[in-house]
Design a protein around this nucleic acid. Sequence first.
DNA 1: CGATTGCTTGAGTGTCATCAACTAGAGTGG
DNA 2: CCACTCTAGTTGATGACACTCAAGCAATCG
Lengths: 253, 253
Amino acid sequence: MAISNSNNRFSSKLTSQCQNCSLSALCLPIALADEDVNRLDQIIERKRPLKKGEILFHQGEEFDSVFAVRTGTLKTYNITNSGEEQITGFYCPSELVGLSGIDENHYPVSAKALETTTVCEIPFAHLEQLSSQIPSLKHQLFRLMSRKICDDQQMMVLLGKKNADEKVASFLLNLSHRFKKRGYSATAFRLSMSRGEIGNYLGLAVETVSRVMTRFQKNGLIDVDGKEISIINLPEMEKLVGSAGECATIEHV
Amino acid sequence: MAISNSNNRFSSKLTSQCQNCSLSALCLPIALADEDVNRLDQIIERKRPLKKGEILFHQGEEFDSVFAVRTGTLKTYNITNSGEEQITGFYCPSELVGLSGIDENHYPVSAKALETTTVCEIPFAHLEQLSSQIPSLKHQLFRLMSRKICDDQQMMVLLGKKNADEKVASFLLNLSHRFKKRGYSATAFRLSMSRGEIGNYLGLAVETVSRVMTRFQKNGLIDVDGKEISIINLPEMEKLVGSAGECATIEHV
DNA sequence: CGATTGCTTGAGTGTCATCAACTAGAGTGG
DNA sequence: CCACTCTAGTTGATGACACTCAAGCAATCG
């Protein structure tokens, strides 16, 4: 099964390719024929890992690639006129970052690594071109963008209608789902973002996030140890969330 | 300049086509060659007008088309588990509704007419197919979806970080921009949605929307007469909004 | 015409932000 | 090794903003 790497046009020793990437079932290659995965592979660049705090792209920078997270976590954020950071999303392995840059041809947000993170860079012009030749790839792209729209709208509901408890519970369960989909534990995981970043993302003060989590722990819903989270009472958490995750519940393949 | 309608495959007397549609510069046909616009035209169905309150598609229904608003206004919303309506967006002429249905192949929201509204139905399978043959159409589709993502993220910022005044001001200015883009007055327009719908959308109580607007009027920022709105002091309004509309400010062509 | 709906205004309350103090851990440098 | 500093997180006290409840008004509708 050894894949010939001889004509790999990238200098690096990072030999990973879509074919042997454990995330291919979740990422772009989904539903692609082997030969098509190969063609996709050709245009993807594996970059050196980003260290914690390093920036993948800056708000305002010219858009030319989308990025698939392979390991680690990213956050996207923009700096408001008043100078404060507003986090718009967290990105786990297999997830695609940068799609919002297509429209204006500039990234409207910055992307920063929350921990050591590796990404696959996918030059969008190439991807778009390739998508003309591979209908299933085009369809996959449309689906991914559509899902992003769907997810963001769920987030809007969360921000507009939910109280602090519901927000935090939704956030934790959302992470839980995403870890589960990737084959990790749905009930025990490590938060790669700080309380401050969670609060920023959820529209809550740091103190509120802290208080809610402490209370959840007191009530036996979760177990918190710094950044390590265990969900003890999943059903109760789901009850708390209530309406959340309309999109997410119709779990896709 | 009469366009031959003889081979129009749609029974209706609604003869409008992309070529003579005043919105073509904003809608899908943007940047398409004449012949390509023609091909696009072929797959588009003009539907009979929706009356106020009529539903264009239901949450959960199978997805098969996106819709371009030609006249009137739509809202999209979903019904949460607790049974309450949550509005996720308002759609003005030239704007595309239904993109969020691509992913799961079901509409995750319902779309309802806020007033008498006409739409162009664009069967997505056809559109996707056509987009393979017309690269600029594909690109336009990507851009539209990307813009939607961008806009939704601005909305997330609004919901998460802004107070009632800023929310209402952002909302009014957002409408103002959209009217202006279509060639209407940026400072005087009619709200097609109720106070209740505005509040629902912005994550505010009806009473709060009412109070804020009244106060804006007292302070000479706007003039309110029922659903008629005039923006008196645009600069002051923009100051209020502050950071809003990062995406929107880099006005696209 | 009463009934209903949409909007406005007032009074009271609760949730969450703000301010502040404190702890714990990590990194720094003598 | 031990202050020292800095940052992240927690906890408590206080208060503001927006929600809820309630009443009243205007317009529309059957």
